[in-house]
Structure formats: C-alpha cells, structure tokens
Simulated scan of single mutants.
Amino acid sequence: MKNNAQNRLENTKFSVLDLVPIVLGASTFEAINRSVDLAKHTENLGYTRFWISEHHNMDSLASSAPTLLIGHIAGNTKTIRVGSGGVMLPNHAPLVVAEQFGTLETMYPGRIDLGLGRAPGTDQRTAMALRRYRQETVQDFPDNINELQTYFSIDNATAPVRATPGEGLDIPIYLLGSSTFSAELAGKKGLPYAFASHFAPTHLHDALRLYHQNFQPSAQMDKPYTMACVNVIAADTDEEAERLATSAKRFMLGVIRNTRKPLSPPVNTMEGEWSELEKMQIEQMMHYSFIGSQEKVARELEQFKKETQIDELMVISHIYDHAARLKSYKLVGELFKAQETAVYSS
C-alpha cells in the first residue's frame, strides 16, 4: 500500500491481546499451540508485546491460567514482551502474583509485563468460587495494588513477608479497565492505563480524560501512557473481512446469550443469526472494530488515533481460520512497518 509518513499512525506502538480462543472442532491443546504460533508470528512482524487475558469457566477460551501461558509463550519467543491483559487481581493473593511474576521476570528478564484488572473474568458464581466467597469492597483493588507494589519494592527487604523471586525486580505494572474507576486510579498512581474498548466502548473518552487529569508522576513513569484494545479484522477485500468478522459477531452473540460456545466458522450473512435487539447490542459492544481491507483499516485506525491520542494499540482478532488470522495481523503489521520505513528514510 502507498505510505505517507505524515499521517500513518506516527509514534504508535502495536501489540496483541490474545484470549486463547477455542475454535469449533479443535481442542484446548490446539488453541494453546495456535497462540504460540501467533506470538512467534507477531514477534517476527515487530509487534511490541503479546498479552494473555484471564477468563474462567468458558468453553470458548483456554486462558484460565494466564501466568502459565505467559511462561509458555515467553519460552517459545525471543524478543517480544509477554504479559497479562490482565491478571484479575481480586481473584489472587498479591503475594502469589508477586512471586509468580517475579519468577517469570527472573526466567525472561526485561520481557514481562503485569497488567491488572479488577473484573472477575467470569460469571458471578465462578467468581465466588475463585474468591472463596469473600465479598470485594471498593477499596480492595487499590489496597491489593499497593500490597503488590510493596512486595516488588527493594524497601521490603526487611519485612517479615517477602516475595522471592520478585523483590527488587523491574516489572512494569499496567492498570486495565472498561470504566472510569481504574482510569482515575491509574492516573493517581502514575501507572500506564489500558482501556478495553474491544467490548466496552462506552466510557473510552471519559476514561482517557480522567486518566490524564489525575495523572501524577511515579517511580515507574513521569508522563501518562495510554493504550486501547480494539477489534481488527483485515483481509484482501472489505467483503472478505466482513465475512470473517461474522465469527466474532457470533462469539459476541454467545456472550450476551450466555452460551459461550467455541469460536464458530464464518457465515455469509448474519441475517437469521440474531434479532434486531441483539444486532444493536453487538454493534454497540463492537463499536471500535476495524474491519476491511488494509487501506480501510489504516484510514479508520488513523482516525481512532486522532480522536484518542493513545500511545499504543492492542489488537485482538477473533478469526476462525488460523491462516486468515495470521494474515490479518500481517496486514496490520505492514501499516506500522511502512510507517517506520518511511520515517527512517525521510
């Protein structure tokens, strides 16, 4: 595609969020292998980081143990940063998280990110089982982050409870969210902030505004850093991309119907698949979806960057066919590679 260095997503990093989707007819073992293959592929394309989400009790996703998957991905790649998008902190004791990510950082130094969320990543009954039926208060998440940061701090060396490995290691923490709560908290704590606009677009602009308004420099960062996760499905033509996107729409349909079945093959049309109300709900959830040819996706991503001024795009692609999924990431990768080439040669 033709490139213009002046308007091609300048200074924007591109990364990957992977939910480790299980496709219809395949096993969880195959889902994990596909994620490893995707990580290798995106590493070769120059993506910045590869994050794994945490979800539980879902037949459609194999990401219930993100820490184990992060280690597996990191062990099968060489340079790409690998992390959690995110660890749902209320599900875990902060000490355990510090020890696990301290171990990962020790094994793969300089490559591990710790993204933290406060949603359960599952239904309420499963959340209660994970949390041993303890009710969460509004202050628990900030307190747990403080505790986690304490375990990573070298100043904790004389404390009676310490994280080994973990203590004194440089493991960047990111706060994730789909509302304004974590945005304001991330700003006050001087941490980078990632918004889940791939399924919850409503509060994106308010969250970014509050983050910037509340930002205070910290030991980790001296200026704000924002990320947004978006759905991207790129193909040779707009028509082919729209057809591939029906798998993502059917996946979202399962979410609102609470059926959560494995990712299904694409269909030629969504007519008859959903009601008008369901169509409206899914179109709202997938508002920040960039579907089409490379040229169309480039134009729309540039507009998104202009409107949000984010520093980094996290790309998620629910595509049934693995080869088509790899190709989508390749087409997107060519956008920022073309930008880098133009900048270096100008």
Score class of each variant (00 low, 15 high):
Phe195Leu: 03
Ala74Trp: 07
Thr158Phe: 14
Val16Phe: 02
Glu273Trp: 14
Tyr344Arg: 14
Ala196Tyr: 04
Ser182Asp: 08
Phe181Ser: 10
Phe304Leu: 01
Ala323Tyr: 08
Gly190His: 05
Gly121Pro: 04
Ile52Asn: 13
Asp59Ile: 11
Glu276Lys: 13
Ile256Met: 07
Lys40Arg: 15
Ser345Arg: 03
Lys2Trp: 07
Ser247Asp: 10
Leu38Gln: 10
Lys78Ser: 14
Thr126Glu: 10
Ser275Glu: 11
Phe181Ala: 09
Ser247Thr: 10
Ala127Cys: 10
Ala186Gln: 08
Phe195Val: 02
Glu10Cys: 08
Lys189Val: 06
Glu242Ser: 13
Ala196Asp: 09
Lys327Glu: 14
Phe14Ala: 04
Ser179His: 02
Gly86Met: 03
Pro266Ser: 08
Val255His: 12
Leu335Ile: 14
Glu283Ser: 07
Lys223His: 15
Gln6Glu: 12
Ser15Arg: 03
Glu105Ile: 05
Thr28Met: 09
Asn144Asp: 15
His56Lys: 08
Asp113Met: 01
Thr164Gly: 13
Thr237Cys: 03
Ala219Ile: 13
Val161Ala: 09
Val97Asn: 02
Asn268Asp: 14
Ala241Phe: 06
Trp51Lys: 06
Val138Trp: 06
Glu54Ile: 09
Phe290Tyr: 15
Ile112Cys: 08
Thr106Cys: 02
Asp222Glu: 14
Val230Ile: 14
Asn44Gln: 15
Leu204Asn: 01
Lys296Pro: 00
Met58Leu: 15
Leu116Glu: 08
Ile32Asn: 08
Ala200Pro: 00
Met1Arg: 13
Leu263Ser: 05
Asp170Thr: 08
His203Asp: 13
Ala129Gly: 08
Glu167Arg: 15
Ala207Gly: 05
Glu167Ser: 12
Phe101Gly: 01
Leu208Asn: 02
Gly121Ala: 09
Arg34Gln: 15
Ala93Ser: 15
Gly115Cys: 00
Ser317Leu: 04
Ile171Cys: 10
Lys306Asn: 13
Val332Gly: 01
Gln139Ala: 15
Arg111Val: 13
Ala219Trp: 12
Thr202Ile: 03
Phe290Lys: 06
Leu335Phe: 01
Leu244Pro: 00
Gly85Thr: 03
Leu116Ala: 09
Ala129Gln: 12
Cys229Asn: 11
Met270Gln: 11
Met280Gly: 07
Val255Leu: 15
Val332Asn: 04
Phe152Gly: 02
His92Ile: 06
Glu273Asp: 11
Thr341Phe: 00
Gln303Phe: 00
Arg209Thr: 13
